[in-house]
């Protein structure tokens, strides 16, 4: 309600000295988008606290799309996906996974995803978009691995449907760069511990999770345990350097 005032205010304080019309349009669009984001009465899903701090708005929003991985990196991270699903699933939401035949079921269970409320559609074939829409009608979180790039019109329809139904979509795989995504999560600098040269076994991993948002702005990133030796997701505690005034 109060946003109307701020919008007119924003419109009046438009910088008039901008030269190129394209730049003005970009500027205006990004401003509209950011205001829409604040105007939407978007409820948040219970997200894992380690990831919630990085996501725009402080958690997974209902009715929004998120992408994991970028076309540049070859492997998208299934553990990051599980970390996103773990919070809502533990809180009683239903999750659907479409087009991911490689989904590690036991790993999902060990990270706290309730298998009773997990639905898998490993091979949707050509009807993947229709299946995703049908499942998004009834489940809270849907994961989709698109086999190819979808057309702009189809994506717009899908995102409208998601907004209406209030389900969250997570897009993974190499065709996950959808322009409608609220945020893009990616993973880098992964380092495993517990394994040596012929000894030990994998116990824990530290990664850097980077979240870049649609509205632009600086990507936020954090060093994270994914998972830590107790199979939890947590921020890496960096040793604090205390400066003390001397002399």
């Amino acid at each position: 309600m109060f946003e109307y005032g701020s919008m007119t205010l924003a419109a009046t304080t438009l910088p008039e000295e901008s030269a190129a019309p394209a730049a003005i349009i970009d500027e205006l669009q990004s401003r509209i988008r950011s205001m829409q984001a604040t105007k939407l009465d978007s409820r948040l899903l219970p997200t894992h606290p380690a990831l919630a701090e990085l996501l725009p708005g402080g958690g997974l929003k209902q009715g929004a799309m998120y992408s994991i991985g970028s076309p540049a990196s070859v492997e998208s991270s299934a553990t990051l996906l599980l970390a996103l699903l773990a919070g809502p699933s533990a809180a009683g939401s239903w999750c659907g996974v479409v087009g991911v035949p490689d989904f590690g079921i036991e790993a999902a269970a060990s990270f706290g995803i309730d298998l009773d409320r997990l639905v898998l559609v490993p091979a949707p074939g050509d009807q993947w978009l229709a299946v995703t829409a049908a499942i998004a009608d009834v489940l809270t979180i849907v994961v989709i691995k698109p086999p190819r790039q979808a057309s702009e019109g189809n994506l717009a329809r899908l995102s409208a449907r998601l907004r209406q139904r209030g389900s969250t979509l997570i897009v993974v795989g190499s065709h996950s760069a959808w322009p409608q995504s609220e945020a893009m999560l990616s993973l880098s600098q992964s380092s495993w511990t517990g394994i040596g040269d012929g000894a030990g076994h994998l116990t824990a991993r530290q990664v850097t999770v980077t979240v870049s948002t649609r509205a632009g702005g600086r990507p936020r990133s954090a060093r994270m345990w994914l998972p830590d030796p107790e199979l939890r997701f947590a921020r890496v505690e960096t040793p604090q350097t205390h400066l003390r005034a001397v002399g």
């Binding site: 999902a108 997990l118 559609v121 299946v131 049908a134 489940l139």
Partner: peptide
């Protein structure tokens, strides 16, 4: 009902629980 609709699109083995 929603999942039954997907099953009628993809067949009975199309929608799985784990």
């Amino acid at each position: 009902n929603g999942l039954a609709r997907v099953q009628s699109m993809l067949g009975h083995e199309g929608v799985l629980t784990a």
